[in-house]
Amino acid sequence: MAIETDYLRYTPSIETLEPDEAETSRALNETMRSISETTLAHGGHAIRSVHAKAHGALRAELEVAPDLSPELAQGLFAKPGRYPVVMRFSTIPGDILDDSVSTPRGVAIKVLGVEGERLEGSEGDATQDFVLVNGPAFSAPGPKPFLATLKLLAKTTDRAEGLKKAASAALRGVQSAVVATTGSPSPTLAILGGQPETHLLGDSFYSQVPLRFGDHIAKISLVPVSPEMRALANKPLDDTSAANAIREAVMAHFSIHGGTWELRAQLCLNLDDMPVEDASVVWPETASPYRTIATLTAAPQASWSEARAAYVDDGLSFSPWHGLAAHRPLGGIMRMRKSAYEMGKRFRAEKNGRRIEEPKNLDALPD
């Protein structure tokens, strides 16, 4: 394992902006807004343009690991502590689809009571968000390919769900063949509907793109470690025909069991093997493994209800730009997310007539 002095130090110069990045950002924002406009027109309610469908929301606690080595004791994790957390599980599309249209899953984590120098746009808040997906790398290397993928998804929003179900079933077969041949799934196939229909609580989740980690640079992962959730890794859902099969599986688990995850950081060694601007590259774990920095624990609870969904889906927003300057999002994909997520937040607040703000506590989260 690398020693502390081997890890690359953070400097602003590690980022390289594309010459026409502002135009790409504008086009991406317009595309995301068009998705939201379409679903609003069809459903009468403003929802997220990505990760629209929630499969559960959990009240949890984050405990920073004690005695972290200096390179890991950074930012939020600089000293031991316990923090209240809300977690939102979701799938990627911007329209609400039956779960038989199987796409990558995400989890958004909001840590409350976090003090320190803030990122621009989150001054006065005391939260830290981590936005994670169940694959180690992003489906596109940078802003322009990301925009191209989003435009493709925008064209299919709220259209021909029956065809999407058939296509998803076929793509899952193709994905199985890809895994058998290469040993790893295709992120592009997963986004188009080729995500295996497994239990969400067995998944590991990743930031996919890097962020500043105090003096260093890191990617973040969330890994289930409690025995009941580890047993769900790659386990098929009991009833894949149910429209809300994932949500029902999460509810069934948390009605009986709690859950424990480890939050882990993978520190960057160099920009050749572990680039900041190419989000499609999986950083090699043989060179720099993910190392535990905190534990997330959720007690048994009602993981979904109409009231809880309304509080989290309509009253909260999650963005990697809600947080500490010590965890500044890095790379082109992260730069695109800043204005896109802000636009989506404003759109939902305006159209639904509801304030969206950073919580001071979770007293209002329905049980």
Rank of each mutant, 00 (worst) to 15 (best):
F138C: 03
D278M: 07
N134R: 03
N244W: 02
T240I: 09
D367L: 01
Q74R: 11
R337Q: 13
G135N: 10
L362R: 11
P143K: 00
G162R: 13
V209Y: 01
S280N: 13
D363E: 09
L119A: 05
R348L: 01
A294M: 06
K110S: 10
A233E: 15
L68H: 10
E120D: 12
P284R: 11
Y83F: 14
R346W: 01
E357L: 13
G75N: 12
E161G: 00
L152N: 12
D95M: 05
N29I: 10
A242H: 10
P80I: 07
Q301W: 05
V114G: 08
K155E: 15
E71V: 11
P236D: 08
D278W: 05
A154K: 13
L365V: 09
T103F: 03
V276W: 10
R328Y: 03
A27I: 00
V101R: 11
E115C: 00
R247L: 08
I256A: 12
S90T: 14
A249C: 02
V101N: 07
P210L: 06
R9G: 00
S317R: 13
A279M: 01
M274Q: 15
E358A: 15
T91Q: 13
L119K: 03
P187G: 08
A126E: 09
V107P: 01
R354Y: 00
D215C: 07
L97S: 08
D367H: 04
I109A: 04
D129R: 07
D239S: 09
D215Y: 00
L153C: 06
L211M: 11
G124A: 03
P210I: 05
H42W: 05
G183N: 08
E228Y: 02
G258D: 06
S207Y: 06
L211T: 13
F138S: 03
D6T: 03
P275E: 05
G106E: 02
G344W: 00
E248K: 15
I220P: 02
D95L: 05
L40Y: 10
P275V: 11
P141L: 06
L200Y: 04
F146T: 11
R212K: 15
Y206F: 15
E248L: 15
R354A: 06
D314V: 04
K338Y: 08
L40P: 00
P224K: 07
F254H: 07
A310G: 02
W283L: 11
T292C: 02
R355N: 08
P366Y: 03
V64F: 05
P320F: 08
E63A: 12
V223S: 10
A233Q: 13
G135A: 12
D99K: 08
T38D: 08
E71D: 14
K360A: 13
A166H: 10
L171D: 01
